[in-house]
Amino acid sequence: MSGPQPQHLAYHLRIRYTKSGKVRFVSHRDVARLFERACRKVKLPVAYSQGFSPRPKLSFGLALSVAHESDGEFLDVELSEQVELDGLVSKLTTALPDGLTVEALRWTRAGEESLQEAVSSCSWRIEVIGASHEDVVAAVDRAVTAPELPLDRIRKGKTRTDDVRPMIIELNVEGQTETGTQLVVELATRPSALRPSELVEALGLEGLREGRVRRTNQWTFVDGERCEPVAPVPSTERTLECVS
């Protein structure tokens, strides 16, 4: 057995994967089912919940909307015993449909935060369509310089008005695409999250809507340094590899 001896009986794998192409139309919940089946196909000894209807212990990070692609998605899998990690990245990828690619995985540290707790912001590439490039550039300027950006949002079935300006960490126009304008964006996920669709709405342009949307990174902080929950390189190391 390679890898470190864990502090407790459960063995938690943190997996990084990408989602792109046709499979981006598969819902978050269905992706979870695909991973459950992939784990069984590669005979990973996944731990099951107790009780009458035992469920495999898989926990996902932030949900990705249907039709969005991603360079960095994460999930934690609890195993009932330790396994050899060599070759697991490619075995899992083979067991998944085209477009879902496992890139890296590592054991989590004892007491490490859950994905939901750890991630504080996400970077996105958002194509917006339905308005002229000039109008989008102007709208982005207005949004970036605005002291506040009130937006009506539905949360838990109720409409409420939030100032979403603090949730926009970065917002830049990269250039034009064939069909619209490419934005490069970083949006907070904590304490309150701003969704790409809400950002597009907050730009306040009639008819503006999402084209292709891609999550490029999910960010967390370890010892004051910004990094991703699993580095985007194959790694069986236990330590977090921070990207600069």
Partner: peptide, 16 residues
């Protein structure tokens, strides 16, 4: 068209 419809995964095939 697919981002505009319910359950677009119905239309993409790609089954094992």
């Amino acid at each position: 068209l697919l981002p505009r419809v319910q359950k677009p995964a119905r239309y993409i095939g790609s089954e094992d």
